[in-house]
Nucleic acid binder design. Sequence first.
DNA 1: ATAAAATGCTACGGAAAATGTAGCAAGGGA
DNA 2: TCCCTTGCTACATTTTCCGTAGCATTTTAT
Lengths: 122, 122
Amino acid sequence: MASRIPVPGGPVRGSRSGKPIMALFDLLGRSWALGVIWQLSGGPLTFRQLQESCEQVSPTVLNRRIKELTSSGLMERGDKGYRLTVAGAELFELLRPMGAWSKSWAHNLSCDEHGDRMRDRK
Amino acid sequence: MASRIPVPGGPVRGSRSGKPIMALFDLLGRSWALGVIWQLSGGPLTFRQLQESCEQVSPTVLNRRIKELTSSGLMERGDKGYRLTVAGAELFELLRPMGAWSKSWAHNLSCDEHGDRMRDRK
DNA sequence: ATAAAATGCTACGGAAAATGTAGCAAGGGA
DNA sequence: TCCCTTGCTACATTTTCCGTAGCATTTTAT
């Protein structure tokens, strides 16, 4: 059980540095952690709504992410469901531009792959 | 073996949406993916340097991340070692502010915990 | 009031990923 | 030649994730 929750200042999934950025990366480097924050940015969601909006992530994992993100002060439980805290909303603002960026990334990637196919063809 | 690499448009670790942001989150939501990008932002690093700067991450995982990040166009291999591509550098620019943010997050977190301890004491 | 549905969550077994250690082939340099 | 570095694979163990089932409690409908 246990499942260490990355806290800045403490050791982090094999890391002993405790550097805040590494603790943050460890926290966000788990399945659906970024997705949960992303989905909650639209407003509070219940457990099942959250699960649904995260492509039916298994309740086991969702519950774990909820505990981790809660105990690290990024989300909390209100009466309308789970929601981002102030800190969580701040972090989302840093994440937000990735939405647009990921689209052009996707576009360029598929172009490159197309290029590869064309090249392979010769 | 296999180990699916998240490509926007394709299914993503249990996800079928293929939304670019979800593909990106899946790619970054793996151990050390964010860390590798972060470390490479300082300039090219050899395999062993990278491993060292990532808290001695195991070569197995490092190699996997390298393949994933390479095939998704975020890093590449030059003659001075591994380095970020233009796209990778762009993504890092979006990540960069997290460095400062994580510090204040760490600060507030430890204050809150201190508050908890004080409250528990009564 | 009571049946039906939704909600938050735990249990469990199996698959996949991460860890840690060992070590090998290729390429210098002395 | 011997030695050292570099990039990487092998392998066994531990951890995490997934998918399904289901349970207790609260809410909604009748």
